[in-house]
């Protein structure tokens, strides 16, 4: 196991906002992630979590510092750092199968035959339990299913690192819990290295090996890293009353609210999934329902 599989060194980024001085979003972010590790980034809205993820993905270029993955510097986006986007980002004009096929045909066009690719696409959709809807359009399936397809598309690229940008933020609590369980299972089976952004403290504690807590922006950086030494496989029901789980959860909450309280009124309006325990499924949120793309859904869950 390579302990320095993914390495962020002195990463900082400035955005040109048109003003006199550019906006500094990140400053001196240092992080080492081991192969097969599951790391969550947590912090208040606007603290630059997504920016960190985008820099790892290569969608943003760091102003200073850099990212090294398996000894190679990251300079552009690529399928070895596949992203699961919050709003699934499936092409609405392609069927579930074709969405995954678009990625698979691109990544494996030389290394796999047509039949092998088809098998691989179907295999990955089966992994996320979507075999029943291969030929449906994204608009015809629920929000949770869309995110499953998004995960399948990501896994099908066989990335070195799976990057997840609030993957379950727009889902209702029940669907979210189901997907978290699926993700845990898949990660246990495949041993993927995962970097996930989340607003949800329970999600972070349940899934992660380490939680990276970020200080508030501008010029955000890593505030504290918490190691989650809960044994795997983890069971959400058992953990809900486990004193160590509760203690870890409390530590994250304390970092977020006691030491890095919500910076501005404007940002306090943004959805923070923290206070709602994942296991506490309110009846309102229970049925998995058809959603368009609304990122606003996440907000209503947290309320």
């Amino acid at each position: 196991m390579n302990a320095n599989y993914l390495e962020l060194t002195g990463v900082g980024i400035e955005f040109d906002t048109g003003g006199k001085t550019p906006f500094r979003a990140l400053q001196n972010v240092n992080l080492k992630i081991a192969e097969g590790e599951f790391v969550s980034l947590i912090g208040h809205s606007g603290c630059g979590k997504s920016t960190v993820l985008n820099i790892i993905a290569g969608l943003h270029q760091a102003t200073e510092g850099g990212v090294i993955l398996e000894g190679r510097e990251v300079v552009r986006p690529g399928p070895d750092r596949a992203v699961v986007f919050q709003n699934h980002s499936l092409m609405p004009w392609l069927t579930v199968y074709d969405n995954v096929a678009l990625a698979v045909d691109q990544v494996f066009r030389k290394s796999k035959t047509r039949a092998e690719r088809r098998e691989w696409i179907e295999h990955n959709l089966e992994l996320v339990n979507m075999s029943h809807a291969l030929h449906k359009l994204p608009a015809e399936i629920s929000g949770g299913m869309k995110q499953r397809v998004g995960i399948a598309r990501c896994l099908a690229m066989q990335p070195k690192v799976v990057l997840m940008d609030e993957p379950f933020g727009a889902l209702d609590a029940l669907t979210r819990a189901q997907l978290q369980d699926s993700l845990m299972q898949i990660q246990a089976d495949l041993g993927n290295t995962v970097v996930m952004i989340t607003h949800d403290v329970d999600e972070a504690v349940l899934l992660s090996d380490r939680i990276v807590m970020m200080s508030n922006g501008p010029a955000a950086t890593i505030g504290e890293i918490l190691t989650i030494d809960l044994p795997r496989p983890r069971d959400r029901l058992g953990l809900a009353e486990d004193p160590h789980f509760v203690h870890l959860r409390h530590q994250v909450l304390e970092f977020l609210y006691a030491r890095h309280g919500t910076p501005t009124a404007q940002e306090s309006a943004a959805p923070v999934g923290g206070p709602t325990p994942v296991t506490d499924v309110s009846p309102v949120a229970a049925p998995a329902r058809q959603e368009s793309t609304g990122s606003a859904e996440g907000g209503s869950e947290a309320a």
């Binding site: 993905a57 290569g58 969608l59 986006p77 690529g78 399928p79 750092r81 596949a82 992203v83 986007f85 709003n87 980002s89 499936l90 092409m91 004009w93 392609l94 678009l102 990625a103 691109q106 990544v107 690229m157």
Partner: peptide, 23 residues
Amino acid sequence: DLVNASRVMSLSPTLHVRKIVLP
């Protein structure tokens, strides 16, 4: 997001235009 998805998949310019831009 769709453009980013295309960039992550590293679609070639022609494929990007055909599969994403045109539709």
